[in-house]
Design a protein around this nucleic acid. Sequence first.
RNA 1: AGUCCCGUAGCUCAGCCGGUUAGAGCACGACACUGAUAAUGUCGGGGUCGGCGGUUCGAGUCCGCCCGGGACUACCA
Length: 1125
Amino acid sequence: MNHKFPEYKELDLAQVNQEVLAFWEADQTFAKSLQAREGRPSFVFYEGPPSANGKPGIHHVMARTVKDIYCRFQTQKGFHVKRKAGWDTHGLPVELDVENRLGIVKTDIGTKISVAEFNQACRKAVMEYTDMWESITAKMGYWVDMKNPYVTYHNQYIESVWNLLKRLYDKDLLYRGHSIQPYSPAAGTGLSSHELNQPGCYRDVKDTTVVAQFRLVRDEVSDFLFAQTDTPDVHILAWTTTPWTLPSNTALAMGANIDYLLVRTFNPYTRQPVSVVLAKDLFREFFPEKNDALAIEDFQPGQKQVPHRVLGEFKGARLELARYEQLMPEMPRPEQGDAFRVLMGDFVTTSDGTGIVHIAPSFGADDARVAQKYGVGALTLVNKQGRFVEEAGFLAGRFVKNEYSPELGPDDETTDVFIAVTLKNQNKAFRVAKYEHSYPHCWRTDKPVLYYPLDSWFIRTTAVKQRLKDLNNTINWKPAATGTGRFGQWLENLVDWNLTRSRFWGTPLPIWVSEDRSETVCVGSMAELKHELQKSVEAGFMASNPLADFRADDFSDQNYNRLDLHRPTVDELVLVSPTGKPMRREPDLIDVWFDSGAMPYAQLHYPFENKEVFEQFFPADFIAEGVDQTRGWFFTLHAIATMVSDSVSFKAVVSNGLVLDKDGKKMSKRLGNAVDPFKTLDQHGADAVRWYMTTNTQPWESLKFDLAGVEEARRKFFGTLQNTYAFFALYANVDGFRADQPKVGREHLQETDRWILSHLNSLIRLCDERYQDYDATAAARAIQHFVIEHLSNWYVRLNRKRFWSPGQGPDKLAAYQTLHECLLTVARLAAPVMPFYAEKLYRDLVSTCPAAWAHSVHLSDFPVADEGLVDKELEERMDMAQTIASMVLSLRRKVKIKVRQPLRRLVLPVLDAAIVPKVEAVRDIILREVNVKELDLLTDTTGILVKSIKPNFRQLGQRPQYRSAMKAITTELAALDQAAIARFEASGRHGFQAGDGQAIELELADVEIVTKDMEGWEVATDGKLTVALDIHLSPELLREGMARELVNRIQNLRKDMGLEVTDKIRLALQSHPETDPAVNAHRDYIGGQTLASELVLDPALENDPEAKRLELTETLALMVKIQKS
RNA sequence: AGUCCCGUAGCUCAGCCGGUUAGAGCACGACACUGAUAAUGUCGGGGUCGGCGGUUCGAGUCCGCCCGGGACUACCA
C-alpha cells in the first residue's frame, strides 16, 4: 500500500496510455468488468463487422469511441455488456482487391485461375490486416472481445445465414426475377453500385439527344385529342439522351397529375403540319414567346420561325393506356405483354425534356418497373457486347456506343446520330440536339456503362414495408432526423432487395433448381444438405455424400469443415428433386450486406446453438456505425429482423458522421491528407483523441479532424485536471492526508466546499442523463467546464491557502476531502470517454487505501447524485460572487491599481432586497478575492444611482392585452426620467395612455430597472449588478500594499534559493525611508508569511555581498538578505 | 434529380418554450500574477447569425423560397 499520492513532473498522456494498457493486460480488467456484472441485466450491443482486408483509419477510431463510451457507461451502471467482435469477410471489395493483387480481371476467374484458387486467395487476403485492427482496437482502448469474433466466412456462420434465407423462402419472400443492372460490355461484367461510386466514375459526357414523335392511335381514350385538331395525326413528344434505346421502346410514361398541352404546329425538319402533346411546364422550351403572334394559316414552308397554337390542356391521367404506333415498325414487337401504350409513372417530372418519358424496359430501372406494373413487354435488341442483334434489321451489328467497338473512334458517326437522322427523315424527330449530362463509366475500362437486364433473386421486402415502417418508428435514432428522414424516406421508397451477385467469394445462394426450372429446393442447414445429398447419392446423381460423416450435434470446426460451403465445392453438389430430376445450385452468391445484417443470429450460430442465449441478446439495446450505413447495415439488420422475427433488431442507434481533414476535405490516400491513426494515438494518447472527438462536435456531424484540437484538449482539459491533481497530491502528501479518513461533518464545510459539491452533484445528474440518452458530447463538455471553470479556476484558487496553511483541523480536512471527492468523481464520470487517464487518476486517488474502493475505475459504479447536496441558490450566489469579483478586478485594471494593493471599500447598490442575504453569504469570498476591506450594501440609492428602465418582455408577453401595445410601452419607458422612475419605484405602478387610447397600467414586475452609473465613483455594471469601488489610497493602505509587495518579492527569493516551503529563515532588509514605515507597521505579517524567525532593518545592507537586490517598483529597489535558520 | 444534415467571430462550437445588448474556447493584442508556474488571471478588438421573403408587438430561433458545403440514394427521359 502506498502512503503517498503519486506526484508527476509532467503530463505525458501517451505514457499514461502505455502504463494503463499494461495494467489492463496484466489485470485482465476487461474480463473482470464482465465477470463482475455476470448475472446482472444485460445491455445488448452489436458490433458491426469491419472488413479486415483494409487498414483501419482515424474514422474507425471515431466510430469505435462512440461504441466504447456507451458500453463502458452501461457497464458502470451495473449492466452486463457483452461485446463480441466480428469480421466482414465476403464480397466485392475483397474480390477487387485480390484481382488487383493477382493482376487479373473477373473474366480470368475460371480460365486463367480456378475459382478454388481465387477463393483461396480471398480467404487469405481477408484477414490480412487483422493484427493491425487488433492493435488499433487495443491502443484506442476499445473494449471488445477480439478473441472469439464472429467471422462471416466460417461454415457455422454461413449455415445460420442459410437458415435465415430458408425461413424467407418458406414465407414466400424469396423470388427469382430480373432487374436492370449496370453492366460493362467492355469488361463483360456486371457492376455494383459500390463500383459505380468509385471517384471519377460519373463523368460529364455530350450525347446526341432526340425528341421523338410517337403517333397516337385514335381510340376511345385518345379521341378527345383528335377531335380538337385539323391534322390527321396526333403525336406524343418524348425526349431521350440515349437514342439507341428507341428501337427497343415499348411504352411511354406520363405523370397522372401533370398538365399537358395539345399544340398545333409544324415539324421543324420536314415542315409538315403536326399536332403534338407535351407538358405545359415545358411548352416554352419548344415554342418561344416571340412566335406566339405567327398564324398557322400563314405558314410558308421556307419560313424560319414556326408558328404554334395551343389547342387544349389536360391531365396526364386522361391518356392512361392510350395506344400509339411502334416508333420503328421495322423492329420486332415484344413477344409478351401489351406494348405501345401510355403509362402513368410517378417518376415523371417536368424538369427537362417534354414531360413524357420514353420507356425501354430493358435498359432502365424505372422503365422496367413501370412496364412490369402495367404488364408491358420488353424488347432487348442489344446484346451484352453492346451491339444490336440480328433482329434489329438495319441496325444489326452496330455498337450502341463507339467506345464498345474495337474499330470506331470518337469522330465516327455514332449510332445515336444515325438513328436521329433516320427519324428526322421520317418525320419522327421533333428536335435533335447535343446535351451534356453525367453518366457512369466502368472504373476499370473507362467506358460507359450499359444498363442491362440480368437475372437475380430478390427478397420481397415490399411485402413487409408497412411493418418495417412501424417498427422503425419505435427505434431511438441519434440523431432523430436520420430515422424519420433518411431512413424513413428510404423505407417509403422501398423496392425489393436485389439479393444476388454474380460473383465468386461470398455466401452461396442455397437454392437448387431443376434444369427446366419447375422444381426448386432451398437448403437451410448442414444436416438438411447431408440429407438431400444422401437422396442424391441414392438417385445416382452423386457418387458419394461428402457430408456422410457430418453430425448435427457436433459444433466443432472439425465437424463443420468437412465441406467448404463456398464456391466451387457447393457448385459441384447435385441434388435430386421430388420427381427424381437432377437439381443444380443457382450459381449466384448473396449480397454481403445480408451477411452482416444476419449477424444477430449468425454470431451465435442460431438456431443451431445458443437458442436461449439468443433470446437474451436480441434485439440490441444499442448499435452505432457511420451514417453511410443507413441504407447498408442499419437497413439489412432491420429488414432481416422484421421479416424473420417481426421485431426491431436494435432499439437505439447512433449514426456518426464522416471524419474529414482539418479543411473539411474528405480524407484519402490519394490526396495524402489521411491521418495515420497509429501515429496519432502514439503521439497524443488515445484519451486526448477520444476527448477531442467527443467534445468537439456531435458525433453525427462530420468532424474536421485537426491535431491542433487534440493538442488543445490535452493542454486545456487534461493539463488543468492534472494540475489540479498535482496540487492536491503535493499538499495531501505533506499533510499525510488519507482518503479513507471518516468524512468531516457538514458543519465543517465552507461555503465554497458546499458550492463545488453542489455543482459536482448537478454534474453527476447531468452526465447520467446525457450518457443515458447517447449524448456523450454534452456530458463531456459539462465535465470539461466543471473541471476548468469551477474546480480549477475557482475552487482551487479560492482555497489554496487552506491547503498550505500550517497545522491540521477539520477545516483543512474538509478541503482535502472535497477536492478528493471532486477528482474521484470526475474520474468516474469521464471514464467512458477517457478510459486511460481516468484509470490513472482514479488509481492514484485511491492508492492510499485501495481496500476502500474498486481497484479500477471501470469496475467502479457510476456515481449517484446526492440531490441533498444540490443547492441551486448557492450556485447562484457564487456565480454572483464571481461576477462581482470580476467587475472589481476590471475596475482595478482600469485605474491601474494592483490586486496586491488593498483598497478600503466596495459599495454595492441594492435594487432588489432579495440579493442582500445572497451577497452577505459570499461577502468574505469577494473581499478576499479582490483585496478590499469592506463591502457596503447601499439600499437607499436615490440620487446616487443613475437608473434605466426597460420592459420585461417575457413578462408582458404573458398578458395578451398588452402584446400589441409593446411598442408604445417601450417608447413610454424610454422617455421616463430619473424622477419618474423613482416615482414608479415608490408607488409600484405606472399608468399611461397608449397612442391608440388604450389605458396601460404597469407594475414593477413588468419592467426591469438597472443601474448605469454612480456619481463620483468608479463603477462597473453587468446586467443587474453594479459595483462601485473606493479607490482612495490612504498612507495606511499604501503601507499595507508595500508590505505585501515585500512579502511577494521575498517569497520569490526564497523559491529562487531553493528553500523548502517549510524552511525558516532569518531576514534582513535594507533600511529605506519608503519602506521602513511599511515594515514597521506590518512586521508580524511579513515575518509570518515568509517564515522569518528574525527580521531586522539594516542600514548597511547595501554593501553586504550576500544581500540581493529586489525591484519593488519601477523606481524603488531594496537590498535583502535571507539566511536559512 | 430526390432525401437528409450543416451554414452563428479568423478557426471549432453553444444558443432551451420566439423576448429586444448573440455567447464560450482557440488564435491575436495588451496588462497582471509568480508557493498550481513548461501554469494562471483580467481586459480588448473581432458578428449583416448564408441570402431573400413571410408570420409576430418582437425572429439567430417558426414558415417558405433560394444560395453554399456534405452525405446517401438514383442516374432517369
